[in-house]
Simulated scan of single mutants.
Amino acid sequence: MATLYRGLFPYLERHGWEIEIAIGGGDLSGFNPADFGDPVIHQLTIERELSPIKDIGGLASFAKLLSSRKYDVIHVSTPKASLLGSIAAALTRNGPVVFVYRRRVYELMSGMKQRLYIGVDKVIAALSKKVVPISRELGDQLVGDGVCKREKLHFIGSGSSNGINVDRFAPGAEAKGAAVLRAELGIPADAPVLLFVGRIIGEKGVDLLPEVHSRVKERIPGAHLVLVGPEDDRDPVKPETLNYFGKGDQVHWLGYRSDPRTAYALGDLFVFPSYFEGFGNVLLEAAAMEIPSVAFDVSGVREAVANDVSGTLVPSGDAAGMAEASIAILNDPALRERMAKAGRERVVREYASAVVHEEIRKLLEAIAEAGR
């Protein structure tokens, strides 16, 4: 929730919108007004995984909520909530529905399971007034998969779904905290740091990071690897990967951090071996803090990284290529500085939250007006 909507709700409230949020439980301790405004929150019973019997209860709770009042726009996003919310909106004749599409959850699936999940997306899209993919390439894929027609798509600016707060993610932000963290981790002041931020899971390519780091250390012996992110047992990494993170030389796994800016400020280069993304938001956060990236040339990443401008893209799965590109940038301070400045300028110009929030407001108001 924090990453997906931070700052958006207060912006909409300042422009006259009343916000109500329906969520499937969870910890709301970090839900502060400065970031999320003052919305009405409805906690519903929603299971994250497909569960036909329990999902009937979730659908009923959605329908009960939508029967209580008429909404100008119903915004759905995560897969399960989007399915139940769009069906409930149709049953109660509420809406219109805007479907913000974040990722093809079936990307690495095959056979019947993949067809099932494509079918779910088709249902949601059919019940929605607009489908808003968070990247241009993702929109092309939805059309190619037969999820919806191109005329139903709407894109927010250059991509992303919430943009980046370029004042919060800025060069020098958390510099003091980063210096303290570097000392706590025992990283020498002049040692280069490879940084990864994201879930510690297979589809993020995390199993390749030990090889990438080891190859970099062969040429730059002082290089450290810092990882920020939680494990997820639904897509676990290999035991030997966890062993490297726990016992490897010059490796520091910090776990989940609600505010990763101190870790970003510690990094010299962002390494991101993900096999696919809806849109690589962490790559924009790194760029905003003037950290160039090395990542795979895959869907949802190639739009977030401008190749040879804000970072370097290498073929998917090529750990050796990722290491070589990392070495090239770390060994060329002028190149690293040029990429750092260009990346920050690009984020400010195209992905600043102020720009993205205004585009979202215009879309919502146009849909609400058309539905009146």
Rank of each mutant, 00 (worst) to 15 (best):
R102L: 10
G25T: 10
K129W: 02
T45P: 10
A328F: 04
G26Y: 04
G198W: 02
Y351C: 06
V100T: 15
S110G: 13
Q114P: 03
G321H: 07
M112A: 11
S310M: 10
N281Y: 03
G317L: 15
P171Y: 00
R234S: 15
G198C: 08
D145S: 06
G144V: 01
R302S: 13
P192V: 00
I53F: 14
E290T: 04
I23C: 12
E49L: 11
N162C: 12
G95L: 09
I124Y: 08
P52T: 04
A175H: 07
G278N: 03
P96M: 03
E240Q: 13
R6N: 14
S353Q: 15
I41C: 03
S310G: 14
V206W: 07
S214N: 10
V347Y: 14
T78Q: 13
P236S: 14
D145M: 00
A287R: 08
A179V: 00
P239N: 10
R115S: 13
E13C: 14
A342Y: 02
V294K: 04
S326K: 01
L335P: 00
S160V: 10
L364R: 12
G159D: 07
G280N: 15
A178S: 15
H224D: 13
S214K: 14
S128K: 05
V206K: 06
L194M: 15
L116H: 03
V251T: 15
V282E: 06
V355K: 15
V193A: 08
Q141R: 14
P315V: 04
T312G: 02
V76F: 01
R336C: 04
S310L: 11
C148W: 01
A319D: 05
I53M: 12
N162Q: 09
I360W: 11
D35I: 01
D27V: 08
L91A: 10
S258F: 09
R199N: 05
P10T: 12
V120F: 10
G317S: 14
K176E: 14
E345G: 08
